Simulated scan of single mutants.
Amino acid sequence: MRIRRIDICDARLFWDVQKQLDTETKFMMLEPDERRFDFSRTIGQISRFDFLIGAEDAGKLVGYLSAKRGKARRIRNTAYLVVGILEAYQHQGIGTQLFEWLDDWAKDKGIKRLELTVMVNNYAAIALYHKQGFVIEGVRQEAMYVDGKYIDEFYMSKIYPSVSPDETVSN
């Protein structure tokens, strides 16, 4: 198992892990039939992330963490995260490793705030986020519609020690 950056050469591998996550869990955004492979679209998606890493096992991506910074000056010190780890690879420390890489990147780039949303019934993810220093800021009521019912989401964040906006000019 190794953690590494994902780039446009990994478009098919990245799409494959996203598609498998859509199929095996109800905690990701898309339903199993919503994701269609489009090579140029996947490359575009990869290139728009400010930070994208994956966990690789035997040439296959088994998890990933992406971060996208705000583009406007007022929110360029904030990054929104998406994390997914295949079921068979959960509870093996992969999430912790992904977040260690993220912390290094965030500190290097002068990020002040990381944020994410998580369904309130995704107990394993919530435990991982708490372990990584995230706190619940609020509830997005009835934010997702899954299996015929509405599910609330927690809005969570991690705030780094004081960072001046002038320190966030690097990309």
Rank of each mutant, 00 (worst) to 15 (best):
R113L: 13
E153F: 08
G70P: 02
F154P: 09
K109D: 01
Y145K: 08
D108I: 03
V169M: 15
A124P: 06
A124L: 08
A11S: 08
K109Y: 08
Y129F: 14
H130R: 14
A143L: 03
Y89C: 02
T168L: 00
Y123N: 12
K149F: 14
R48D: 08
I53M: 13
Y89G: 00
K109F: 03
D16S: 07
H130A: 09
I6F: 03
K158H: 14
Q18D: 01
A143V: 07
D152F: 08
K60W: 02
A88Y: 03
K131N: 12
I159D: 12
A72Q: 12
Y129S: 01
Q132L: 11
F154C: 09
R69P: 09
Q132P: 09
Q45A: 14
D104T: 15
K26Q: 10
D10N: 10
N171K: 13
L65P: 02
Y123V: 05
V83K: 00
K107H: 06
V169W: 11
R41C: 03
V17Q: 04
F14K: 03
K109C: 11
L13R: 09
R73G: 02
I3V: 15
P161W: 10
Y64C: 06
R5T: 15
E115D: 06
F14Y: 15
Y89L: 03
M156Q: 13
L61A: 01
L128R: 07
L61N: 06
L81P: 09
G44K: 10
L114T: 08
A79Y: 10
E100G: 01
K60N: 08
D10W: 12
G110V: 12
P32M: 02
G93M: 03
I85S: 06
S157R: 11
I3F: 06
Q97D: 10
K19I: 05
I151V: 15
